[in-house]
Design a protein around this nucleic acid. Structure first.
Lengths: 213, 213
DNA sequence: TAGATTGTTAATCGATTAACAATC
DNA sequence: TAGATTGTTAATCGATTAACAATC
């Protein structure tokens, strides 16, 4: 504890650094300066150095940054050296899409269970994981060391399900339901509101058309 | 043209206002003050008033805001009174999930076509739309007044496909591929990088555990 | 050593919050 | 009219960028 708090603006940029560094590493680049990285990523070199220095010095004067080392360190900061068990709640199209996405496993997120209240879906198999009835959710979360719940259910049931999850010790919710969850301090929620994202796109299309008409 | 530029921070909040106002409208609330809305949404009343005033005065002193009127106006600002034809490129799980999501239609986004380079998927039906081979993409975009392309393909082909789309007059790309697209000025790109979102969640889980250990 | 580039402090910019006069 | 609440200006806060001394 007592580390200085890092702003969410900085956190939000870390995955992108991680992605670029991973790609550089894969093509065999050994070292990179903040200047070079800034041109590649189209951000300022100043911001890159400030961001990294929130976590201590990863570079070396006169040399730059070692790509592989920096990549690993950012991975650690993001907690990708830890593993977390997760369940998906809602076996509709989106839930199944996320369950089938293999890359999460590579980052330490282990797909353990899937739940749906629709009896027609119960028993179906998603990448080796059987869909279970909602009634089994709470016990399953308690007994299988589940850290993260992915919510891909309609907003009407999302709030109620989130409450149950919290009571059974979930640490984090990745929320795709179109509603804001109200959880106690200490439970992490990351919202992915797809309609919001599409509306932003819509605004920007319109704005551009107006500006150029 | 020559409207004052609205910051993306403000734009990013509009869909959430829109959602809350829609819900208030649906339960029959007629008027609301910035103070009441601020308690509901957990933002400051000051921010709400500043945000709305970017677009001119929607309220009335001593009264507050008319919910239905405000809802409609924000909808217009977001361009939800316009219709846009879109295609989905990539008929995998995620592409099909988005194709099946009915709500987009309600907001003026019309699902017109779906494309995949896998012959096994071509001909499949997603909510009345047949999956076509990638070879037909460019002609289809040109001839069917397609504004928006949804990219749910692997990053390896995303950049190349984006270039083709741009050449055939697409206005906007909703990009789910895990790569940054480089498009000309005036083409709108909205990224949904799901892994980035999950990494942010991962960071916050870890941080909380460290702070409390 | 000289040159390069970081780490870090200072300056700037933009976004959020507070305050209050205008007005319904 | 008096009370309520907006619209808007001013103050604060935080994030980004610039500058440069430290140092590899």
């Amino acid at each position: 504890m007592e580390e200085k708090e890092i702003s969410q603006a900085v956190i939000g940029r870390l995955p992108r650094y991680f992605r670029y560094l991973g790609e550089l590493k894969d093509v065999g680049v050994e070292r990179i300066s903040s200047q070079e990285l800034s041109e590649l990523m189209k951000v300022t070199a100043s911001q890159i150095r400030q961001d990294f220095n929130n976590f201590g010095g990863f570079g070396q004067q006169g040399y730059g940054y070692n790509v592989e080392y920096l990549y690993k360190e950012i991975g650690k900061i993001l907690g990708l050296d830890q593993t977390h068990n997760f369940v998906i709640i809602g076996a509709g199209n989106l839930g199944r899409a996320l369950g089938n996405y293999m890359n999460f496993e590579r980052r330490g997120f282990i797909f353990r269970g899937m739940f749906d209240q629709n009896p027609a879906l119960v028993g179906q198999d998603v990448r080796g994981v059987k869909v279970r009835p909602m009634e089994e959710l709470e016990q399953f979360v308690r007994e299988n060391d589940i850290d993260i719940a992915v919510l891909t259910i309609p907003k009407t049931s999302a709030v109620e399900v989130a409450d149950k999850l919290v009571h059974n010790g979930i640490k984090a919710i990745w929320n795709f339901a179109h509603v804001d969850l109200n959880v106690p301090e200490g439970i992490q929620v990351e919202n992915v509101h797809l309609s919001d994202s599409l509306m932003k796109l819509s605004y920007n299309i319109n704005r551009y058309m107006k500006e150029n008409s």
